[in-house]
Computed example of a mutant assay.
Amino acid sequence: MKPSVTLLLGVALALSGCFASREARIESDYSYNGNFRRYRTYDFVTGDGLASDTSHIGTVLREAIQSRLRIQGYKPARRRPDLLVNFRVFEGNLRFQGYAQEDLTTWIKNGLVEDDETPKEERQPYKPVRLLLTDGTLLISLIDNHTNRAVWNGYASGVAVPPGPQGEVILRRSVRSIFDQYRIFTEGYINSDR
């Protein structure tokens, strides 16, 4: 039996998407002030820009982020969410300041949380790292709604997004790869019936 041209073309497109998404550089950093154990709800930042964009790409990104947060036990909330989610796609190269830190899950397992009351000598130092993010950077930020501080940034750099369905697949994979850096489940989620 001869394979159809459509099937071969579909397989070629799927493989090209895998290669494009593997080339992306995935990084994240977090705030030592983040109280990650208490976050349970989220909503998206509203206003101008892609976060409020009703375009197809904005919708695909919002749905992918919602899906991942739901898997990790977070619930959407319009009134007083714990976290606000913001995302943006940058075109062109971008200079970005990140931080060299231990893994977020290790930080949380150690039970460390800093706040304004933490003595200066007990605070963790931030070790800034200057990064050059290449064309096509997707940045996702989680903001503590009570303090108005960004507590986590995840980004994929070098994401080539072709038009059409293949671009959607690459965006969804990029969101999944970014959130693989944020492996925080809500408290009690694993033991609950969901």
Results as ranks from 00 to 15, higher is better:
T137A: 03
R38M: 07
S55P: 03
G49P: 00
L9N: 11
L171G: 00
V89I: 12
D103I: 09
N86C: 06
E168L: 05
I65Y: 02
S192M: 08
Q72N: 08
P162Q: 09
R95P: 02
Q66L: 06
Q124W: 08
D43T: 08
Q66M: 08
S52L: 08
S192C: 04
E102S: 07
L9A: 12
P76N: 05
W107D: 00
S52R: 09
R130D: 05
Y42D: 01
N145S: 15
T105Q: 14
F90W: 14
P163N: 09
N148Q: 14
L133H: 07
Q124V: 05
N145W: 14
R95Q: 11
W107S: 00
I26M: 10
P163W: 09
E121D: 10
R22A: 14
R40K: 13
G136M: 14
V5H: 11
G73L: 05
L139E: 07
R183Q: 11
E168D: 13
Y99N: 11
Q181N: 06
R25D: 09
V169Q: 08
Q101R: 10
I170K: 03
N33D: 14
Y99F: 15
E117W: 10
N148F: 15
R37H: 08
R149Y: 10
D144G: 05
T105D: 11
A156N: 03
L133Q: 07
D53C: 03
T6L: 15
S28I: 03
H56P: 02
R37D: 12
S21D: 08
E121G: 04
S67F: 08
N145K: 14
V85N: 02
V129C: 06
P125W: 12
E122H: 10
Q166P: 00
I140D: 02
T106Q: 13
E168R: 11
R130F: 06
P163I: 08
P162T: 06
F36I: 02
E102W: 11
V129G: 05
G49Q: 02
G17P: 03
L15W: 15
R130Y: 05
T134Q: 14
V45S: 03
V60Y: 00
D103V: 10
K120S: 12
Y39G: 01
S67P: 00
T186F: 04
T54D: 13
L132F: 13
I71W: 10
L7Q: 10
R173W: 12
G92A: 01
G154Y: 06
E91D: 13
F179D: 04
R78K: 14
P128F: 03
D48A: 10
M1H: 13
I108N: 04
S31P: 04
T6I: 15
R62W: 00
G167C: 03
P81V: 10
S4K: 12
V113M: 08
I170H: 04
